[in-house]
């Protein structure tokens, strides 16, 4: 696809803007910002990837993966600013997910140790885990605020923080995982996953594309589970003082 023909597709954005103005939806500004950001971010990442793929340096691959994990962790943290030091559990969860999934994929040889595979697949898995982490932390804060009386009651009966928080951690972990599970259930029925679509357009054999897509789906499922469980269990001690008192997020 040439740059010129790509530019013509901007017409769609213009149509959306006209509609927004006409119906007074008030989203014109956001449409412009979103389009401009998408162009800049993707162009930039396109050139960076081209450079990294060409260089074949392990260090660049690791740096890219670290960047992906770092940005994802920072993003997820913005959902849970009230929990002190929550960035560490998030980083631990995302790093554990990345290591576990890549170890399996590389270990059994489904993907070769090449930048074009590792970086793109990491992006998909970590991106999904980031969403799971955000949902989990959001839910955890709500659980603690709403469940303060119950949690305090367990503590007052001499229960440990873990005993007091466990039912709430469970709910939060479920909240983190359920969207991934649900979208996996309907995958291919409602919309074709982006990666598969891309491969098919680029001329790949659909059956081959499906295999790759399934691999990714399984990794994403496992990733959301690993992320949620690691973050859930590393975060709850931060909700209690050293004297086992609940800190209610404000």
């Amino acid at each position: 696809m040439t740059f010129l023909s790509l530019s013509f597709t901007l017409l769609f954005v213009v149509v959306a803007m006209v509609l927004s103005l006409w119906l007074k939806l008030g989203v014109e500004r956001d449409l412009v910002i979103a389009s401009v950001r998408a162009v800049i971010q993707l162009l930039l990442i396109g050139y960076i990837l081209k450079f990294v793929f060409a260089s074949h340096t392990v260090l660049f691959i690791l740096a890219m993966v670290a960047l992906i994990v770092g940005v994802a962790a920072w993003n997820a943290r913005s959902r849970a600013k009230t929990i002190p030091g929550v960035i560490w559990p998030i980083l631990a969860g995302l790093v554990a997910t990345e290591i576990a999934t890549q170890a399996v994929l590389l270990g059994i040889g489904v993907i070769p140790f090449q930048a074009r595979y590792i970086i793109t697949i990491s992006g998909m898995i970590v991106g999904n885990s980031m969403v799971a982490a955000g949902l989990l932390l959001n839910r955890l804060q709500r659980e603690v605020t709403n469940g303060e009386a119950e949690i305090t009651m367990v503590l007052a009966l001499g229960g440990t923080p873990k005993q007091a928080i466990y039912p709430h951690i469970k709910q939060a972990i479920r909240a983190g995982m359920i969207p991934t599970i649900d979208s996996t259930k309907t995958t291919g029925l409602v919309q074709l996953p982006g990666m598969m679509t891309g491969q098919i357009i680029a001329g790949a054999d659909p059956v081959q594309a499906v295999r790759y897509q399934l691999m990714i789906l399984f990794c994403i499922l496992a990733g959301s589970a690993i992320t949620s469980i690691v973050i859930g269990f590393l975060t709850y001690p931060r909700l209690f003082t050293s004297y086992q008192q609940l800190i209610v997020p404000k």
Partner: peptide, 19 residues
């Protein structure tokens, strides 16, 4: 030890929270 203290010193609140 926190747990032992809270076993020895029981507490009942104004609103009864049922599990």
């Amino acid at each position: 030890p926190v747990q032992a203290l809270r076993q020895k010193v029981g507490m009942v609140f104004q609103t009864a929270t049922m599990f």
